[in-house]
C-alpha cells in the first residue's frame, strides 16, 4: 500500500499541518510519499525529506504551482494517483480547495476533516460543527482524505528520504493568480500556536482590539484569534477567525476575551487543553467549557492580566 501526502507550504517553509498529516497517513499504513508542488520550493522539498516515516519526496516545479492553483494541482496529481491507494492532505485552505477536484476525477467520495482512523477504510470525522462525531466506512477503491491538524501530533524531523524531481503539467489553466494580501506577522501561526488569546465583539473597535490584545499576546508569546463577530466588524483580519467556518485550533492555553461562546465558535476551540474565559456576563455559554472563568469587565481585566503575567 502507498499513500501520497500533499505538502502545505508557501515555497519557503513547510507548515506543521503537513507533519500532522504524515502522522495520520502512518496510522492508515503503507509507504508514504510527500508531494511538494511549488515554485522555487527546493528548501521545502528538503524539509519534507526530513519528516519521519517518509519514503520519498516528489518535487514538482512550475509557475502555476507557486500558488498551488486548484486546476493545475488536479492536472498534476490525478495521474500520480495510479501509483497510490490513498491521497492525504491537510485540511488547510489549500487542501480544502484542491482535494475535492482530485476525488471527483477519481470518482471517489472524499472524506473531509478526519479526526481518527480505524483501519484502511474507516474514518472518524466531526459533523454539525463538532456536535456529533461520525464514523464512516468508504467503499471506494482509493481513499481521498483531508486531515484535521488538531487531532494528530506532528511527525518528527529525523528522517532522510530521497527527493525525486517530477514533471508538472504547465497549462495553460483556466484560472490565473492576480494578487495576495498576506498578513505579515511574527506571531505563531494559529493552528500550531501553544497559546492563543482570542477577542470577540466586546472589544468594540479595531483600536481597542489592538490596544488590549497585542500587549497580552506579546507577553505570552501567543497567537491572536477572534470570533466571527469581531472579524465581520473589522476588528481583526479574516484569517484570525476561530470556529466552524474559520480555523480549528487546540492550543495548550486558549484565552477567550469578550466572546459569548456560540456553538460555531466552540467548534473551533473546544479541544484546547486549558480554556480561560473572561466575560462580564456570568451566564455566557463560554463558561460551560472554560476551565477557569473570570466574570469581569475585560477593559480592566485584560490590562491587569497583561501586567501580571
Amino acid at each position: 500500500m502507498a499513500v501520497l501526502v500533499i505538502a502545505d507550504h508557501d515555497n519557503a517553509t513547510l507548515t506543521d499541518a503537513t507533519h500532522k498529516t504524515v502522522t495520520a497517513a502512518k496510522a492508515f499504513g503503507g509507504d508514504i510519499d510527500v508531494l511538494v508542488a511549488g515554485k522555487g520550493a527546493g528548501d521545502v522539498a528538503a524539509a519534507a525529506a526530513k519528516i519521519d516515516g517518509v519514503r520519498k519526496v516528489l518535487h514538482a516545479e512550475g509557475d502555476a504551482y507557486e500558488k498551488q492553483l486548484a486546476e493545475a494541482m488536479e492536472a498534476l496529481i490525478v495521474p500520480l494517483m495510479d501509483g497510490y491507494d490513498a491521497l492525504f492532505s491537510p485540511a488547510t485552505t489549500m487542501g480544502k480547495n484542491v482535494t475535492p477536484r482530485i476525488a471527483a476525477k477519481l470518482d471517489v467520495m472524499q472524506i473531509s476533516d478526519i479526526t481518527g482512523i480505524e483501519g484502511t477504510d474507516t474514518f472518524e470525522r466531526p459533523i454539525y460543527a463538532g456536535n456529533a462525531i461520525m464514523t464512516v466506512k468508504s467503499s471506494d477503491p482509493k481513499k481521498v482524505v483531508t486531515v484535521r491538524g488538531t487531532a494528530f501530533d506532528a511527525a518528527g524531523e529525523t528522517g532522510s528520504a530521497s527527493v525525486e524531481t517530477i514533471d508538472a503539467p504547465a497549462g495553460p489553466f483556466k484560472s490565473a493568480f492576480v494578487e495576495e494580501k498576506i498578513v505579515q506577522s511574527d506571531r505563531p501561526e494559529l493552528t500550531s500556536a501553544k497559546t492563543i488569546v482570542s477577542g470577540g465583539r466586546a472589544l468594540g473597535s479595531k483600536e481597542e482590539f489592538d490596544r488590549l490584545m497585542i500587549p497580552l499576546a506579546d507577553k505570552l508569546g501567543a497567537g491572536i484569534g477572534a470570533s466571527r463577530a469581531a472579524v465581520d466588524a473589522g476588528y481583526a483580519p479574516n484569517d484570525y477567525q476561530v470556529g466552524q467556518t474559520g480555523k480549528i485550533v487546540a492550543p495548550e492555553l486558549y484565552i477567550a476575551i469578550g466572546i459569548s461562546g456560540a456553538i460555531q465558535h466552540l467548534a473551533g476551540m473546544k479541544d484546547s487543553k486549558i480554556i480561560v474565559a473572561i466575560n462580564k456576563d456570568e451566564e455566557a455559554p463560554i463558561f460551560q467549557v472554560a476551565d477557569y472563568g473570570l466574570v469581569a469587565d475585560l477593559f480592566s481585566a485584560v490590562p491587569e492580566l497583561t501586567e501580571a503575567v
Binding site: 508557501d10 484560472s175 492576480v178 479574516n238
Partner: peptide
Amino acid sequence: EIDGGLQTLSL
C-alpha cells in the same frame, strides 16, 4: 479567504 490572508484569482 485563505490561511494567512486574502488571494485574488482571475477565472
